[in-house]
């Protein structure tokens, strides 16, 4: 039957459109509901997992780091706030908050000795000494996490890489590429000489002196004129394991 245009036809078409829209809305709602349900299930399972392995998460640094990775993958940040389910359940917000405070303390107390640059391993060692009464072990991963939380304070805490080492910077000095290269070079023996810098990095004398003088002024280097060969050595407490010696007394 041929349909003619008319008021009836228009109304039928409008009704059909409405129904399609309704149907479409229903489908979409169903999908979101399903999604919500899945997320809820996931969340509750993650919660259950966390509850079940609460002690492992607290005590075992490797486990803790894997748990963090898992959380990150599904977009949950257990450290985002100190309130809320995660912090209440695990107390890990407090844990990292405490670590952060202790890291700041260590960085400040060793700053006169190392110029505000400390080896991450050394920092961890001092942190463990400081926390020897706590049962929970602390890993480098935990330190890094705590430091990343400190960044939000805008206080210039940052982790930089120099060669194989990770260094934690607690002063707002920007290290230039030249300085970084010297720090990298110094890791072998704990010190460099002007000659070495010129030779190994193929720099001019002026460039080497300039970079070393800056590092000296920043308190990151110390000179040593006591060697029998008469050559001045520039030592870098931040790459020697003794960057913290005065601080342990």
């Amino acid at each position: 039957m041929r349909r003619r245009p008319g008021i009836g036809g228009l109304q039928t078409a409008a009704a059909a459109r409405d129904q399609y829209r309704l149907l479409g809305e229903n489908v979409a709602k169903l999908r979101t509901d399903l999604m919500k349900e899945q997320l809820a299930t996931f969340r509750s399972q993650l919660e259950e997992f966390a509850r079940k392995h609460k002690n492992d998460i607290r005590k075992n640094p490797a486990f803790r780091s894997q748990f963090h990775e898992m959380c990150a993958k599904v977009g949950v940040d257990p450290l985002a706030s100190n309130k809320g389910f995660w912090a209440e359940l695990l107390g890990i917000g407090d844990f990292y908050y405490e670590l952060g405070v202790q890291i700041v303390e260590i960085c400040l107390s060793t700053r006169p000795l190392n110029g505000g640059l400390i080896d991450l391993q050394e920092l961890c060692k001092l942190l463990r000494q400081k926390r020897k009464h706590d049962r929970e072990a602390v890993s480098e991963d935990d330190c890094l996490r705590a430091i990343s939380k400190l960044k939000t304070l805008g206080s210039g805490f940052e982790v930089i890489s120099a060669g194989k080492k990770k260094l934690v910077r607690s002063v707002p000095t920007e290290l230039k590429k030249d300085h970084n290269e010297i720090l990298e070079l110094a890791q072998a023996q704990g010190y460099v000489t002007v000659d070495e810098v010129e030779r190994r990095l193929s720099w001019t004398h002026g460039r080497a002196i300039d970079a070393l003088d800056t590092l000296l002024d920043e308190g990151l280097a110390m000179i040593d004129d006591g060697h029998s060969d008469g050559k001045r050595r520039y030592w870098f407490p931040c790459v020697s394991s003794i960057s913290s010696f005065g601080a342990d007394s």
Binding site: R233, W235, S240, I242, F245, G246
Partner: peptide
């Protein structure tokens, strides 16, 4: 103390 073993001191 430790610093006694660090040459630049």
């Amino acid at each position: 103390p430790h610093f006694f073993n660090y040459p630049p001191y």
